[in-house]
Design a protein around this nucleic acid. Sequence first.
RNA 1: GGUCGCAUAGCUCAGUUGGUUAGAGCGCGCGCCUCACAUGCGCGAGGUCGUAGGUUCAACUCCUACUGCGACCACCA
Length: 925
Amino acid sequence: MELSKAYAHGEIEAKWYRYWDELGAFRPSDGAERSFSMVIPPPNVTGSLHMGHALNNTLQDILCRYKRMDGYSVLWVPGTDHAGIATQNVVERQLAQEGISRAQLGREKFIARVWQWKEEAGNTILNQLKALGVSCDWRHERFTMDEGLSRAVREAFVRLWEDGLLYRAERLVNWCPRCKTALADIEVVHEETDGHLWHIRYPFVDDPSGGLTVATTRPETMLGDTAVAVHPDDERYKNAVGKRVRLPIVGRELPVIGDVYVDPAFGTGALKITPGHDFNDFEIGQKYGLEKICIFDDEAKIRPAAFAIEGREPAWLARYRLKDRFEARKLVVDELKANGLLEKVEPYRLALGRCYRCQTPVEPYLTPQWFVKIQPLAAPAIEVVRDGRVRIVPEGWANSYFAWMENIKDWCISRQIWWGHQIPAWYCADCNAGHAIKTGTGDLILDKDAKPIVARAEPTRCPVCGGEKFIRDPDVLDTWFSSGLWPFSTLGWPERTEDLKRFYPTSVLVTGFDILFFWVARMIMMGLKFMGDVPFRDVYIHALVRDQEGQKMSKSKGNVIDPLEIMGKYGADAFRFTLAAMAAMGRDIKLAEERIDGYQNFVNKLWNAARFVLMNLTIRNIDGKETSERPGHEELNVADRWILSRLAATVGSVREAIDSYRFNEYAHYLYQFTWHEFCDWHIEMSKLALNGGDENERRRTERVLATVLENILLLLHPVMPFVTEEIWRALNDKLGRKEAGLTLMLQKYPRVEAAYRRPEVEEKIGYLMEITRAVRNLRAEMNCAPSKEVKVILFASADNRAFLRSQERYLRALARVGSVDYLSDGERPKGAATAIVGETEVYVPLGDMIDLEEEKIRLDRELGRAEEDLARVKRKLGNGDFVAKAKEAVVRREKEKAAEFEEKIRTLKLSLGRIREIEQTGDKA
RNA sequence: GGUCGCAUAGCUCAGUUGGUUAGAGCGCGCGCCUCACAUGCGCGAGGUCGUAGGUUCAACUCCUACUGCGACCACCA
């Protein structure tokens, strides 16, 4: 099989993916003693692949493929999330385009419609993940609303109820008037917003000319005020406490209460109390037994019923009824202004809470909801992170985790939407006859006093009255409730399955920090509660992918880079490698397309290195019996020993990097080794053996080339699975290896071959490389044509001289050197460019070509640097404290440096002297 | 308001226990179609490591303050 001149990812990727899948390579192996498991952070079922998914899944795939090759039985569970509110919103928007509302359709038909959409769109993202190359076990694919997971959800809910960790109560909750549902605290995003502080006077009942002036950012809520509060020690309001004020517009009488909660320094020092629409006011309302008036309906429009007295609406209400919050605000402000009660308006910055799904400002809203008593769950979840049973990497995130968990409040888990897990609670129709209220959409709402029966299935008989008619709670659960069970629900819980035994706790969870609280924290709590063990050992938290300016990618900004487009253009391997290379811990990734373009070159480089090796291989069957006795290390030439030593070092570094989630280091070690050690040096040096005429050496070098190439493929496979597989198959083909195995994916990951580590060889080749560079440098500086061979004169220690003599062919080939002469003490060439490598002096006599002025400038510059270096070292050594206190090795090293620099200076000065001499005599010979 | 993080070459970033001649990729400059690769090869220029102090024989690295940027959390109307 011939490889084409440039790597074309085109069909290769799909070909291999299908191959692996059909081979069953994604499934956990039997037999392996160690297992490694992960659950995918389930993407929204109707979503499509974005950069965040691409990064997240690339990193997971690297881990899985690495562990699989390293002998673990690997299970990576894929799946999708039903994403309650998000998905419902999408489908509602679709309906809206058809001019249908969800209410018109009705609950059942609406849900059917969502399922239909799920069937249409649900596979998109998973297929896109396949294009990325993820090695998930597709037989394990799950959906948070499939049968098994739904059962897990019901089970979890019932157990929480039975254990007293669930309750239903009327509380002030965050309400999204657009989604018309309650939200958890964490689903509200606070955003600094420009607003106003309105100062409104509430006249005293007994003296309407006086009164208290309150300051508020939300004047429309005054319609629901039930008190005014001041600080009890506030001199200004000493005699106001206990009096009554009349609420403007509404006319209601309000008590003036004194409470230390009020900050006298803020605003006017007088605070309007609206227990129905403000969390703080709610608390105060509780404390003083104030009435909680809910002035809005579920769309945050003025609710006439809130003001009707004995069924009759007061006259003032006419202009307000059914107006939304913001219209109402305007109207209230206008009316107050007209009445001379608006005393002042000042600009004010406030943190406005918005719905995380639709950005609508959230309204504190009084409704009955289901809550999880979170304290008993949070405490052990904090503990396991503290004692390291769950390790958060990078550990900085643990701080955020603790901060959040320690201040956590009860979790509102009921949502007034239709798409999701309907709460497994029923109400006896007879017992709750007075508590079920029909809404406009035909839904029933159970009021706060309704008595739920929580059960795994619909009850048949009411234990109180024996009634047989039940109403199911219409609410569904927070999406994150089911995601919280994901690590064990996907493995079969509540059944005690083999998978659970084998793969729970999972090994590591890879995710972005944006869902640390939404998801990670919940999984830890739920895992501990229901499994009695942590859901994962490690949590690796990766960064966000941003655009090249560091802006968050978003459709509205138009700065989104589409992973699919990128993969189509550059290939999945180049893309994956880019993401890994840029995934430095704890730092966001600023991605520009040029980076991917750059790493595509690396893929191509690897491809061409492979082409070189393949076209030079004449040996066959290097792994078969005949050749399993590899050549003794000592028989190999120095270049081969060197690259094997470097390979061994690289294997060590690579393993360490992946083991500690340093994906960028993993990528960079391999980039460096493949390109700058293997290609730049070893392949070049190997050409001498391949063309040298010594048949034995040639065969040995071929074997080394094949070995190194194969190891590179193995090492790179987790990050670039496709091209490595493609090359590996070609390599097997070329070697005639039938027994090599079916796929690179299931080969053993390289281990460090300690016997190959040869520091002394690395040192020698390092020296040879430096000499080579020095000669190349001199050539370039002197503008010596690359095609022209030069003569080199070396002055080196006996050791180095012997080494260079024995390996002279490399120097000749790599630096285009015609002849090499070795000087003994005393003699130095007259007209030559000079370079110094350690103790070695390198001279390139360039005859007529040498520009004496240029060379003098160059030498002067070198000399200047050397003198600076020497001065710095001398300064250190001259410091008595340094010599006395620093470690001996450090001092010794400094002394060596001093000697080296002195020698260098001496040599440079001599060279300069010789040039001046030539200038005077004109004799260049 | 609280907490945390980040400031290193023109750009994007590495730099794991304090001691290196502070690195890479891209970009830039010069020279090359050298028989794996011009998606390439060789060479080179470019940084007082945000500012000011402190600890230490020694600070890019540790501490403090400041400045700038960012993130998360937060019910002060």
